[in-house]
Design a protein around this nucleic acid. Structure first.
Lengths: 192, 192
DNA sequence: CCTACCGATCGGTAGG
DNA sequence: CCTACCGATCGGTAGG
């Protein structure tokens, strides 16, 4: 049990260091120092530096899927989109360090994990794209350039990890409502 | 003259490698190999690896300032904003590799350059914020949360370096018009 | 622009 | 979980 606690601790410290300094710039000696053990001891919990990165990236990927897959697909597309945005932002807000690693350090995954990661991310983005298509088909959304809108959607959602502060004046609900409002009123047909 | 050509070449190859693999993950040996010289030869053109990063980051910063400072400040805020967005995106589109380095690898600048870089970036963002404030004062823009809007604005503009292809179906003008339309119609008061 | 080389640091292992 | 250590690679320099 104690071993498991230490493993969780190593992972949390690694998330923080990988986010702040980057994966490549963080040595196992840095990590060991921040945890408070000798470098060699880390290898009792993770078989390599690469394995730590894998754990961080894929565990968070699971959380993103869980959050979005639980949503009701019978709702109107605009409501679905609002809920999906909120769900996505909640995962980021609850995992700020891991999100930073997930979004910027994933490219240092080694094969076959890198390929796997890209596939998962593509699959995840498809869930949002499906909602947008549905909205266009139902005449609720303008006939947008789908790729452009998808990229803007994800860039604005994902950037939140960089500035969101749990103690700041904007709550997660505030943020997701404002972002949804901004993106929806830019895409939604004016009901003349 | 030949020396200068080689220096430019080193810098271009470095922009590409730093962007693709990251600054920390690119060794001077990698760079030398890609350029086609011995590692020691690089030091005839740049005094250190850090100096290459500085050149890339600050030269692009200059370009951003030049592009935005040339705009007419007497125009209506919504037109000003549209032009500023277009100018910003043009710089990114013309410097895709450098933009990737500028946006992701700046944190590996050493002091005092790191502090200088942050100040410049803040000063640059202020130019956009001023336009937004003006728009709110004139009653053209909704009374938005300025910080939130600024962050969304820059995240959606800056992400473009990641997916824009010079030969793709979306031109720079297409992109800046679509982004402006998306962001403005989300922020502009409906003229009832 | 190259050959030759430096001390420092890296990820990881053996063995207890 | 630690001591002791490995070969590999790093950024950079001396000298020509």
């Amino acid at each position: 049990m104690k071993k498991n606690t230490r493993k969780i601790q190593i992972r949390q410290v690694a998330q923080n260091l990988f986010r702040e300094r980057g994966y490549m710039a963080t040595s196992m000696r840095d990590l060991a120092g921040a945890v408070g053990v000798e470098p060699a001891s880390l290898y009792n919990h993770f078989k390599s530096k690469a394995a730590i990165l894998q754990t961080i990236c894929f565990d968070l990927a699971d959380q993103f899927f869980e959050a979005v897959d639980g949503l009701d697909k019978a709702l109107p597309p605009d409501v679905q989109l609002a809920k999906a945005i909120e769900a996505h932002i909640w995962v980021i807000a609850k995992n700020l360090d891991a999100s930073g690693v997930f979004l910027h350090e994933w490219r240092f995954l080694d094969e076959p994990h890198l390929t796997h990661f890209k596939k998962m991310r593509y699959e995840y983005e498809t869930r949002f794209e499906r909602i947008l298509h549905e909205g266009v088909q139902q005449g609720i959304f303008k006939e947008i350039d789908m790729k452009f809108y998808m990229l803007t959607l994800f860039s604005s959602m994902n950037w939140i990890y960089d500035w969101y502060k749990p103690d700041g004046k904007l709550s997660v609900n505030d943020i997701s409502q404002q972002l949804t409002d901004l993106l929806l009123n830019g895409i939604k047909k004016a009901t003349v």
